[in-house]
């Protein structure tokens, strides 16, 4: 976050970290009210931290300063636990939203609903990319006729593109990460409304450090320096 803010000419006013069991955010909200930043970026996780959005709304800050998050409702549930009055307007960016409009996604949602008729699960990026991973692996197994690692890698590294609920997904041979669409969406009435889409985004962060084409047997834990 710091890096992106500074790269885009922004100024970072302050960063605070929160233990996962913190439920009270009064001091932080007061500090934000004093600093009056243009935007608040939240990386809060877990149900205790939902207190932030709740107390933010109760302090009359809703609509005063926008909140964007790369973690809010990552599993989908946060958007439902908060009431619309508290959650509306929160911006997030993920690689999947249920509101993506294409036939594959419609079919995907129908299949999930049919499989769990009583209690359909909340779909989020986590759920969809897990599905993607298994489906891409299955496709490679079918094509390679094997479940060994090497033949599967060969198939995936061809840069084949897969038709997934999110849109077209392919595997970057350099990093083995996905090249895929990414979205920015705003929460409205407990549903995310897509505001902007970024088609076929490269895994730029890992590409900076990892090149499996040159060193296919690399066995290092890469750290991306900020």
């Amino acid at each position: 976050m710091k890096r992106y803010v500074e790269e885009n000419g922004g100024e970072l006013v302050e960063t605070e970290f929160f233990p996962l069991d913190v439920t009270q955010f009064g001091s932080t909200i007061s500090k934000i009210q004093a600093a009056k930043p243009d935007i608040v970026l939240s990386a809060l996780v877990g149900t205790a931290h939902l207190g932030f959005y709740r107390q933010w709304a109760a302090s009359g800050m809703k609509g005063e300063i926008p909140i964007a998050s790369t973690t809010f409702a990552a599993g989908g549930t946060d958007a439902v636990i908060l009431t619309p009055e508290e959650g509306d307007g929160i911006l997030t960016s993920y690689g999947y939203y249920t509101s993506i409009d294409n036939p594959t996604n419609t079919a995907f949602k129908e299949k999930v609903a049919a499989a769990y008729p009583d209690n359909p699960p909340i779909l989020s990026e986590l759920a969809e990319v897990t599905w993607e991973g298994v489906m891409i692996w299955a496709d490679a197994v079918r094509e390679a006729g094997s479940i060994e690692r090497e033949p599967l890698l060969e198939v995936m590294e061809t840069g084949k593109s897969y038709d997934m609920p999110v849109g077209s997904v392919s595997i970057d041979p350099k990093t083995h990460h996905a090249i895929r669409d990414v979205y920015i969406a705003e929460l409205q009435d407990q549903e995310f409304v897509i505001k902007e889409s970024f088609p076929q985004v490269q895994p730029a962060d890992t590409q900076m450090v990892c090149n499996l084409e040159e060193t296919p047997d690399a066995n290092v834990h890469h750290e991306i320096s900020l």
Partner: peptide, 15 residues
């Protein structure tokens, strides 16, 4: 279940 919609904080804010 795991996810139930909560309630907003009542009463609003004091400036």
């Amino acid at each position: 279940g795991n996810t139930v919609q909560g309630v907003s904080t009542p009463l609003g804010g004091l400036a």
